[in-house]
């Protein structure tokens, strides 16, 4: 599904190398988690994959189902099936949540040569998905993320994921700022989307989220590289002993 080879990335504006050779292969239908201390490059990885400006790829490659991602515009990556759930979802005053979602869904369909959804079809789809995430009609009508609580914003990210049905979902610290109940709701939403042809890359600081979204593989990222990979037990080790032990052992 997602394949990253020897990815090196620096900041465009300053001479600072963030990713120093990331290798990662996510198989279809699997959930991978990336954990790591602050500043290890986890969020940068998610931004670079989704095409945010401000980063320069100095070496390596990243592909989605064999298609080179790094040459594509952000919207082309989305149409190819990549989705990033933002750590800090952006508030957009004046753009209605429904308008936004429908525009996005139809833009992707159009880019893939599929028929666009009619207003009625879209309404049916979004109502169904919103219900599963406990998102009410009022939230759909409001401008994108404006006045949403932290939990509502994250649920809105998952709603977008549910409506857009991407193949490769990256969740960037989706658990940050969530209370236990909100986290469960978000995890349920993600679990409902698990499928054989869909993969997840869950970026998180804490093991907590992984209690609810069970990963197949856990990676530890430090200093711009993936330094260790293992099963779910690796997350527990981090939870119990912190990163220090792991980082020492790989140093």
């Amino acid at each position: 599904m997602l394949e990253i080879k020897n990815l090196h990335v620096k900041l465009e504006e300053e001479d600072k190398q963030i990713l120093k050779g990331v290798d990662l292969k996510v198989e279809p239908g699997t959930v991978h988690a990336i954990m790591g201390p602050n500043g290890s490059g986890k969020s940068t990885l998610s931004y670079v994959l989704s095409g945010r400006e401000g980063y320069e790829v100095t070496d390596g490659e990243a592909s989605l189902e064999g298609e080179d991602l790094l040459d594509l515009e952000p919207e082309e990556r989305a149409a190819a099936g990549l989705f990033l759930a933002f750590q800090y979802p952006v508030e957009i005053p004046g753009v209605g949540n429904m308008t936004f979602l429908r525009t996005a869904a139809n833009a992707q369909r159009k880019a893939r040569g599929e028929a666009e959804l009619s207003a009625a079809e879209f309404l049916r789809l979004i109502r169904e998905r919103a219900k599963e995430l406990d998102i009410d009609a009022e939230m759909l009508k409001r401008p994108v993320n404006v006045g949403f609580s932290g939990g509502e914003k994250k649920r809105n990210e998952i709603l977008q994921m549910a409506v857009l049905e991407p193949k490769m979902c990256i969740l960037d610290e989706t658990d940050s700022g969530l209370d236990v109940d909100a986290m469960k709701l978000v995890a349920q939403g993600v679990n409902a989307l698990r499928a054989e042809d869909r993969s997840f890359l869950v970026i998180t600081h804490y093991q907590r989220l992984l209690d609810h979204i069970k990963p197949d593989v856990v990676h530890i990222m430090a200093n711009g590289r993936i330094v260790q990979s293992g099963g779910p037990e690796l997350a527990l080790e981090v939870e119990n002993n912190g990163y220090a032990d792991i980082l020492k052992s790989v140093a």
Binding site: S50, R52, E73, E75, V90, V95, T103, A104
Partner: peptide, 13 residues
């Protein structure tokens, strides 16, 4: 930032 958010959902620039 808003522009990137919209584009990351598949909406053209």
């Amino acid at each position: 930032t808003s522009l990137f958010y919209l584009r990351s959902r598949g909406i053209s620039r």
